[in-house]
Design a protein around this nucleic acid. Sequence first.
RNA 1: GGCCCUAUCGUCUAACGGCUAGGACAGCGCCCUUUCACGGCGUAAAUCGGGGUUCGAUUCCCCGUGGGGUCACCA
Length: 448
Amino acid sequence: MSTNVTVRIPPSPTGRLHIGTARTALFNYLFARHADGRIVFRSEDTDRTRSKREHEDEIVEGLHWLGLDWDDFSRQSEHAARHTELLDGLIRAEKAFVSKEPAKDDPSREVEVVRLKNPGRAITFTDEIRGEITFDTTELGDFVIARSRDDALYHFAVVADDWDAGVTHVIRGEDHISNTPRQILIQEALGAPRPVYAHIPLILDAKRAKLSKRSGATSVMDYRAEGFLPEALVNYFALLGWNPGSDREDFSLAELVEAFSLAGVQKSGAAFDREKLLSVNQRWMRKLSDEAYVSHLNDLDPELDLSNIGKIVPLLKERARTFGEAREMLGGELAFLFAPPSVSKEALLAKTPAGRGAEVQRALERALEALAGLGSEIAANSAKDALMPIAEELEAVGKGSRGAFLWSLRYALSGSERSPDPFTIIYILGADEALSRLRHALALLGAS
RNA sequence: GGCCCUAUCGUCUAACGGCUAGGACAGCGCCCUUUCACGGCGUAAAUCGGGGUUCGAUUCCCCGUGGGGUCACCA
């Protein structure tokens, strides 16, 4: 592996795996893998009170689930001794100093924080995505870089760790733009090289504010639990703020690695659109083999009885946009496929013109006989071949009767005003169950 | 509010000075059709405003305005 490019994925384990974290990690991954470079994962756990191992585990698991990986793993807390060493060096060189001051949380107590001696000048850096950016750093003053000599703060730890890891490209959210000058100040004090910066646009919610817990589901794991495919999430996240310069939207992770370039990254924030994500997800679900589809359903809900679902998968593929939706359909609008529905005589004849009731009933009886003649194994199209002639005959006698008959047939089988067509239902139910439901409907009509 | 970033259909975006401003999602309509779903076709929908530069600006510059971010001894 060449080492001309090294990026970092530095999540802080203080919460669940946020969509924004995942997308930033994805962009780093795409950039690095495209350049055949290195990726270092660094858990930024220096906030001892908020950092939790369970969060780190979820972040790692979620990122792996999306298909991302890295070449090196470390925790910032493991670098504490190195931070102290660097801090001491800075103090000795009089580029930083220890300052005795009242503690922020308890002013009666005195603490010794470390502050950077700020030369106080304008800092200009080049952002790969936005061009030159200049800040006046005088207003920053001699800012705090460590709570004490052995407890470095974020900005210092980041700069030190990036330096030690040989990070060449810092690709992160736009919200870090204003952090960059102070990190550059620390770099210069340390004598560390300046990496290339690329600040990617933020993901916004529907109200165009930075995505937060209030904006709805923001954890990648929530989407997994809802039955989204990692391929779909990756595909959609990549297109939020990046594009290949063409109309193409269908990308696998490997194809993204191939196509990715910072030049295609957008400058302004992108609103997260769940509808579009759903559409992308459905596209990926449809690519699955029926077997894989069922296996995903099983992963989502191990309690689900999927023993006789094989014939139903095509129906789910054309309807469900997530596996969660698919599961709901099995217990909802498609539940009639598993247990006989209740049917009403009125709905059975809902589309039958006045005075034609007897006619439709006779046709249903003929349908029953035709079906019985097919035997118990029904092929995909044989029900249609057997029953459509009856419908056509009816139409010849009275216009609109075909539709009335087919409606009644379908309703007798599904007990629902909206459902797949009767032939598909018969195929799925099998001859015995279909005949039983038809008999039941006929009995209802006969009871007039 | 200071500082910084930013600005093409409702949303994601294409067009890196020169085409009727293109695509996708959502919307709407039509077709297919026994209903639903799928599918096919079509339609509506945008260059924030004002100045420049230029033969010519969505594109380059400036000023407004809008939006966003950030202002910790959090990361």
